[in-house]
C-alpha cells in the first residue's frame, strides 16, 4: 500500500513515516502543501495523511485541488485544530477521516489501514480467498488452517493481490504500491517476490492461488479461467 504523508514537522515526518513503513506501507513524505499536491497528482496513492496547517499551501487547499481535479484518493486529515467547524470544513471538502494531534500512533495506523481497505471497496479486516485467510488487524495469514509466516514485503504483496482479487495487477502497479520505487521494472525483483510468496502459501495446500498473466501481470484467485 502506498501512502503519502504531508506534514511540515520533521520529527513527525520521521517517526510517523517510519511507523508506516514498519507496518508495511510504502511512504512518500512531503514537507509543504505545494510538494504534497504535486506528489498526490503525480502518483497513485492508496491513502494520503494530510496535515492542515502547512507552509506554502494549507492542507484544505491541497484537498480542494485534488477533489477539483477528480482525484478520489482517500484522505486522512491530521491537525492540531480541533473545533467542530474545522472538522466539518475538512469533511465537507472531501476528507474521509480526521485525526487530531496529539494522536496515538496505533490509531493513526488503524485509520490508515481502514482507508486502504476502503480504497479497494472492502470493509472487513479479514480477507478470505478460498482457503486463504488474511487478517489485516493482526497481519496474519492462514491457509488451510495453517499459519503462513511471511516477511513484511511479502505480506504487503499478498495483501495487495488479495484486495484486487480477480483483477490483474501489473508489474508497474505492484512496483508503485509495494516497492517504493526501489524495484527496477527491468529487474526480476517482483518475479522473485511472487515466486517466494507462491512457495510459502502452497505449503499448506499446493493448489495455486497466484497466477501469472503473461505480458500483463499477476492475478490472485481460486479458480483460474
Amino acid at each position: 500500500m502506498r501512502i503519502l504523508f504531508v506534514e511540515d514537522s520533521e520529527r513527525l515526518q520521521l517517526t510517523v513515516a517510519a511507523a508506516l513503513r514498519r507496518s508495511g506501507y510504502v511512504v512518500d513524505v512531503a514537507g509543504d502543501g505545494e510538494e504534497g499536491l504535486w506528489l498526490a497528482e503525480s502518483n497513485e496513492y492508496d491513502a494520503i495523511v494530510l496535515d492542515i496547517m502547512l507552509p506554502k499551501m494549507d492542507g484544505l487547499s491541497v484537498l480542494h485541488q485534488l477533489r477539483r481535479k477528480g482525484r478520489e484518493v482517500h484522505v486522512l486529515l491530521l491537525t492540531a485544530k480541533d473545533t467542530v467547524d474545522d472538522r466539518v470544513r475538512g469533511l465537507e471538502l472531501g476528507a474521509d477521516d480526521y485525526l487530531i494531534k496529539p494522536f496515538a500512533q496505533r490509531e493513526l495506523l488503524a485509520r490508515v489501514e481502514a482507508l486502504c481497505r476502503r480504497a479497494y471497496h472492502r470493509k472487513e479486516a479479514k480477507l478470505v480467498i478460498a482457503d486463504l485467510e488474511i487478517d489485516t488487524a493482526t497481519k496474519t495469514v492462514v491457509r488451510a488452517g495453517q499459519t503462513v509466516r511471511l516477511r513484511p514485503r511479502e505480506y504487503q504483496l499478498l495483501l495487495y493481490l488479495a484486495r484486487r482479487t480477480g483483477e490483474v495487477a501489473t508489474r508497474a502497479e505492484i512496483e508503485a504500491h509495494i516497492y517504493d520505487g526501489e524495484a527496477d521494472l527491468m529487474s526480476n525483483v517482483i518475479e522473485s517476490a511472487v515466486s517466494a510468496l507462491r512457495k510459502k502459501i502452497s505449503v499448506p495446500n499446493p493448489a495455486p492461488l497466484i497466477h501469472t498473466r503473461p505480458g500483463l501481470g499477476y492475478i490472485l484467485q481460486a479458480d483460474p479461467e
Binding site: R22, A80, K81, K101, P102
Partner: peptide
Amino acid sequence: SADLAHELRTPIAELRSLAEFAVAW
C-alpha cells in the same frame, strides 16, 4: 487559545510519536 493549543499540541504530538515509535520498534 487556538494558537496556543496548536503551539503545544504539535510538540506533544512529536513527543508522543517519538516515544510510541521507540516503544513499538
